[in-house]
Amino acid sequence: MELLMAITIGVLTACGIYLILRARTFPVVLGLTLLSHGVNLFLFSMGRLTLAAPAVLGDSSHHADPLPQALVLTAIVIGFAMTAFVVVLALRAAVELRSDHVDGADPDEDLR
C-alpha cells in the first residue's frame, strides 16, 4: 500500500509540475491544483497509512496520527482560497493584457 501511495503522490506531483511549466494561465491553474493534491497526500502520508482507525477517541484502541490530518485540513481550505485567487488573477490578466500567456502578451516563447 505504501508503494502505491508513493507512486500516486509522485504521479500527481509530476503531472502538476509539467502543467505549471506550460505557457498559458489555465493549465498552470490546473497544475497548481494537481500539485496541491500531491503535496496534501504527501503531508498526510507523513503520519503513516492507517486503516479503519480514525483519530476519534473511543472507537478503537489505536488511532491514525491526527496531527498531519489537522495540517492537511487547513491546507486544503487555504489551497482552495489560493486557487480562487489565482483564477481571478488569471482572469484579470487575460482581460487587461488581452492574452492568457503567463508572461502577458508574448507568444514566441522559444526565443527566450
Binding site: M5, A6, G10, L12, A14, L21, F42, S45, G47
Partner: peptide
C-alpha cells in the same frame, strides 16, 4: 519540462516511500 516533472515526481515518490515505511515517531 517532462524530464523535470518526472525527475521531481520520482524524487517525491522515493521520499514519501522511504518515510512511510519507517516506524513513526510522532508527537
Amino acid at each position: 519540462d517532462l524530464i523535470l516533472a518526472v525527475a521531481t515526481g520520482s524524487g517525491v515518490a522515493v521520499l514519501a516511500y522511504t518515510v512511510m515505511t519507517r516506524p513513526a515517531q510522532s508527537i
